[in-house]
Amino acid sequence: MKECLKIKEDLQEGIVVKRTNRFVVNVLQGEKIRVCHLHDTGRLKELIYPGNSVLFIDKKSHLTDCLIMAAKGSNGWVITNTLLHRELAMCLFPKNVKVIPEVKVFESRVDFFIKPDLYVETKGCTLIKNGVALFPDAPTERGKKHILTLIKAVEAGYRAELLFLIMHEGAKCFYPNYITDPEFEKLFFKALEKGVKVRSAVFSLKGKAVYYIKQVKVCRSKPRI
């Protein structure tokens, strides 16, 4: 277990009342309704629903006054703030490498270029069923575009890696969510055949710190989900 980051702000707990749109959630704190921003483009139906607990910090914008950091899951708190993804990914890279974030390649952008020749795209994974971490939890045109970009990078002589940041400590293996986005599953395995590497890292929020727990492999067989 390795500590990757600490949340500096005070974490407060509340209960989800309603998700008013994709990025705004009404949260009950005591007798007060807080209007929180949800910085995650996924559906998160298993996490953000009326009655479930969330952790948030005070952060004002023109529409909201707080930011949701995590939601209660089956194995503890599940990080839902994708703003943390870059720092978590950086925690996994060797200390002695040169990392360039947000780089343009083949009319697209990927999260990292690690000199001299490695492109890395990260994806946050918040959905788990029967110990299987699943991505995506909603159809993702952007995700499919990123896989195609990594394939092009390998074909051009670079190395490429698809890095899944799994926010459930109970994950035993990873598999592309063929129910939600069957085309993503096809491209995922095409990428493996072409030489794109896949890494799935499990993280856990304990107190105010986020820890890297372990790495899991792609499931040996197609799971029932």
Rank of each mutant, 00 (worst) to 15 (best):
I33T: 01
K115C: 15
I114Q: 13
K152N: 11
C91W: 13
D10L: 11
L162H: 01
K144P: 00
V196C: 10
I57G: 01
K222S: 03
L165K: 13
V103E: 01
E193V: 08
A156D: 10
H39E: 04
D111I: 10
E121K: 00
L205S: 11
E31D: 09
F174K: 03
D58G: 03
F93V: 07
K123Y: 06
K2G: 00
G157Y: 03
V202K: 04
V105D: 06
E183T: 12
G195Y: 08
R43G: 05
E141A: 12
L148A: 14
A201C: 09
F184D: 02
E87M: 11
V97Q: 15
A71H: 06
G131L: 02
K6Q: 11
V97K: 14
F113T: 00
E121I: 02
L162T: 02
N96P: 11
W77Q: 06
S61N: 08
N26R: 05
I179K: 12
V97A: 13
K222H: 07
I128D: 03
K186I: 12
P50N: 00
L148P: 06
E185K: 02
N52A: 02
D58Y: 07
T180H: 06
I57M: 10
Q29H: 07
F174I: 07
N52P: 01
N81V: 01
T122C: 14
H146W: 01
H39W: 10
L38V: 01
E155M: 03
E102K: 15
L5E: 12
A138P: 02
H37C: 04
L134C: 07
D137H: 06
K129R: 14
A160V: 04
G14A: 12
P50W: 04
T64G: 04
T80C: 13
A89E: 08
F112P: 15
S53I: 03
N26E: 05
L187F: 03
D111H: 15
C36T: 06
R43C: 01
E121G: 06
N81W: 02
D181W: 14
I166A: 05
F203T: 10
H62T: 12
H39P: 01
A171I: 15
N177S: 12
P101I: 03
R199L: 05
P139C: 09
T122E: 15
V218I: 15
L28H: 00
S53K: 15
L118K: 10
L38G: 02
I68S: 06
R159V: 02
T64S: 14
F113Y: 14
G170T: 12
L55T: 09
K8F: 12
Q215C: 04
A70L: 09
I147E: 03
L148S: 14
M69W: 04
V105F: 15
K222M: 05
A70I: 05
P139A: 04
R109Q: 11
K197F: 05
L55D: 14
A156Y: 00
V99F: 13
A133L: 03
F174Y: 09
T126E: 02
Y158W: 13
T126Y: 07
F113A: 09
L5K: 00
R43Q: 12
L63A: 10
F135Q: 00
